[in-house]
Amino acid sequence: MSQSALSSAPVKTAGVALRESPSARERFADAVEKSWRPVALLVACFVAWWVIAAMELVEPYLVPSPGKTFEVILDKPDYLWQHSWVTTYETLIGFVVAVAIGVLAAVVMVYSTTVEKTLYPILLFAQVVPKIAIAPLFVVWLGFGIAPKIVIAVLIAFFPVVISMVTGLKAVDPEMLQLSSTMGASPWQTFVKIRFPASLPHLFSGLKVAVTLAVTGAVVGEFVGANEGLGYVILQANGNLDTPMLFAGLLVMSLIGVVLFVIVELAEKLLLPWHASRRESGVTTAF
């Protein structure tokens, strides 16, 4: 047998079986298997919504029919798009700032026990304070512009980023840290080569939570004081008893959160193909 054939032949290990990469048909079947339950639940919710509206179990001015809600979305796409873009922009800026500050704070807390003992109670206190209660203060301090919405989005999205990053940095195998120290690696090299890559699965778990909370934060800021954004649309519709527009704003806001969540999850799949939860091929034990 030639050298190239030997190098390409799979290595067999006792008790271990290689699992081949799934075919396109298998991947499609797996995607259907994973998605049909949430899709079925979503359809059931819409059917229940339609039944409640059609049978007038609740007054139409309280719960509009799905048809009227989607009719509003189709009749005013430019209006909803304009306000949706404002909310999305505030969400993205707040999310990026929260990630930057959260990761930096987590690194400092992990490498300094004094900072962790000092900062952690303050972070916990800031998290339990209702953001809707302090939102008017930011409007008074920062005005009615975009700044208070971004600040509230940062405050809401900040905590899950910090907690997940701290957990990931502390979850590194101590033997790996001892090995890197024995081999003469500097603290920076240990962080870049070992600690940070090992923390990424935990970090992305926090990012998926944070990006959806950032949408809520932006909308909460718009509730308090704004003349644009989905929070403004929902507030105006509520004041005018325009429930179809109110439900349309809620649906679009939910869609923004879902899309951003999916984007973060796709980024996780692209950046962490080595993580066990993302492997589509590999080895499985035979016993």
Results as ranks from 00 to 15, higher is better:
F196C: 11
F204C: 07
F204K: 09
S205A: 14
K208S: 10
K208E: 09
A210I: 02
V211I: 15
T212D: 03
T212A: 12
T212I: 05
T212Y: 02
A214H: 00
G217A: 03
A218G: 00
A218R: 00
V219L: 03
V220G: 05
G221V: 02
G221M: 07
G221F: 06
E222C: 02
F223I: 02
V224Q: 10
G225S: 15
G225W: 06
G225Y: 05
N227D: 15
N227Y: 14
G229L: 05
G229K: 12
G229A: 11
G229T: 07
L230P: 07
L230W: 05
L230Y: 04
L230Q: 07
L230I: 10
G231L: 11
G231W: 14
Y232F: 14
V233L: 04
Q236S: 12
A237Q: 09
A237Y: 07
A237G: 12
G239R: 13
G239W: 07
G239M: 13
N240D: 09
L241D: 10
L241A: 13
D242M: 09
T243S: 09
T243H: 00
P244Y: 00
L246P: 10
L246F: 04
F247P: 05
F247C: 04
F247D: 06
G249D: 13
M253P: 10
M253A: 15
S254F: 08
L255N: 01
L255Q: 03
I256K: 01
G257H: 06
V258L: 15
V258M: 10
L260Y: 10
I263D: 02
I263F: 04
I263G: 01
V264H: 08
V264C: 12
V264S: 09
V264Y: 11
E265Y: 13
L266R: 04
L266H: 01
L271M: 12
L271W: 06
L271P: 00
L272Y: 02
P273A: 08
P273N: 10
